[in-house]
Simulated scan of single mutants.
Amino acid sequence: MTTISAVEVNKAAARRFYEEAITQGKLEVLDEIIADDGRDTASPAADITGRQGFVEHITWLRANVEGVTATVDDLIAEGDRVVVYWTIDGVQRGELFGVPDSGAGRRFTGVSISTIRFRDGRIVEYAVLPDRFGIVSQLLR
């Protein structure tokens, strides 16, 4: 019988975060992959510990980016950490990185790198470094 390693469990949870929670909007997935004391440092409500900060972040993102997709391009994992290189794509429908929605429905694509720390297969810390310059320059065209 094959046993799935903790690293593989963490990688699967990270992938679910992008594919199911962000892209598909299945926020109930967060109950399975976010620890009770999880922290989303990228959330507009970064001071909220637990799933609610993640819910608010994804809800905000999906409200401001129509048709948002978060595609996992690469995952690297070791121990309790997973680094995710991913691509975001969508149409601006609200303020993003200080750029107000022009009403033009500008499509953009950007890359981001996230670091995620896990405990017992659940996210306890999430941080993201998006290509703000690349995204903003597309929105200002």
Rank of each mutant, 00 (worst) to 15 (best):
D40M: 10
V7W: 00
D47E: 14
R141C: 06
S102K: 07
D74E: 14
E95T: 15
I33E: 10
I113Q: 11
Y126K: 08
S114L: 01
H57A: 08
D80G: 01
I113K: 13
A42G: 06
D80V: 02
I123C: 13
R62E: 05
V111Y: 09
D31W: 12
E19V: 10
D89C: 00
Q52K: 09
L96M: 00
V124S: 04
V124G: 02
E95I: 03
T69D: 01
R81G: 06
G25W: 14
D40K: 01
T109G: 08
L139K: 11
G110T: 11
E56A: 10
A35C: 10
E32T: 08
A13F: 12
G38A: 13
E8W: 08
V99G: 09
S112E: 14
I88R: 01
T69I: 11
V128A: 13
R39N: 13
V83I: 14
F97G: 14
L30Y: 15
S112F: 14
H57K: 05
S114C: 10
V91G: 10
E19T: 14
D73C: 08
L30C: 11
T87N: 06
V84A: 14
Q92G: 07
G121P: 04
G94V: 13
R106G: 00
V65M: 03
D131H: 00
R132E: 09
E20T: 12
P100Y: 04
V83E: 07
I123W: 07
A12G: 09
I22D: 09
V124H: 06
E32Y: 06
T71E: 10
G38D: 05
L96S: 03
L140A: 12
L27G: 15
S102I: 10
R93E: 13
F108P: 01
R141W: 03
N10R: 07
A21L: 05
S5F: 08
Q24P: 05
G90T: 05
D131Q: 10
I135T: 13
T71D: 14
T2H: 14
S102N: 14
G98R: 08
S112N: 15
E56F: 03
G90D: 03
D80A: 12
E66M: 13
P100H: 06
R107F: 01
V111L: 02
K11N: 07
A104P: 02
A6S: 13
Q138K: 07
A70E: 01
P100I: 03
R39I: 04
G103A: 02
V82R: 00
A42P: 04
D101C: 12
I76N: 08
L75Q: 13
L140K: 15
V82D: 01
F118G: 02
K26H: 15
T23I: 10
V68L: 04
T71M: 11
V68Y: 00
E125P: 03
Q92C: 09
I116Q: 06
E32Q: 11
T87Q: 12
A45K: 11
V82S: 02
Y18K: 09
R119P: 09
I58C: 07
I88T: 11
I123P: 05
D47F: 15
E28S: 15
T59R: 03
S43V: 02
F97A: 15
I76R: 02
V82M: 06
V136F: 01
D101I: 00
Q92F: 04
G134N: 13
V99R: 06
L27S: 13
G25I: 15
V7L: 04
L75R: 07
D120L: 04
V68M: 10
E78Q: 12
A46M: 08
R117A: 04
T2M: 13
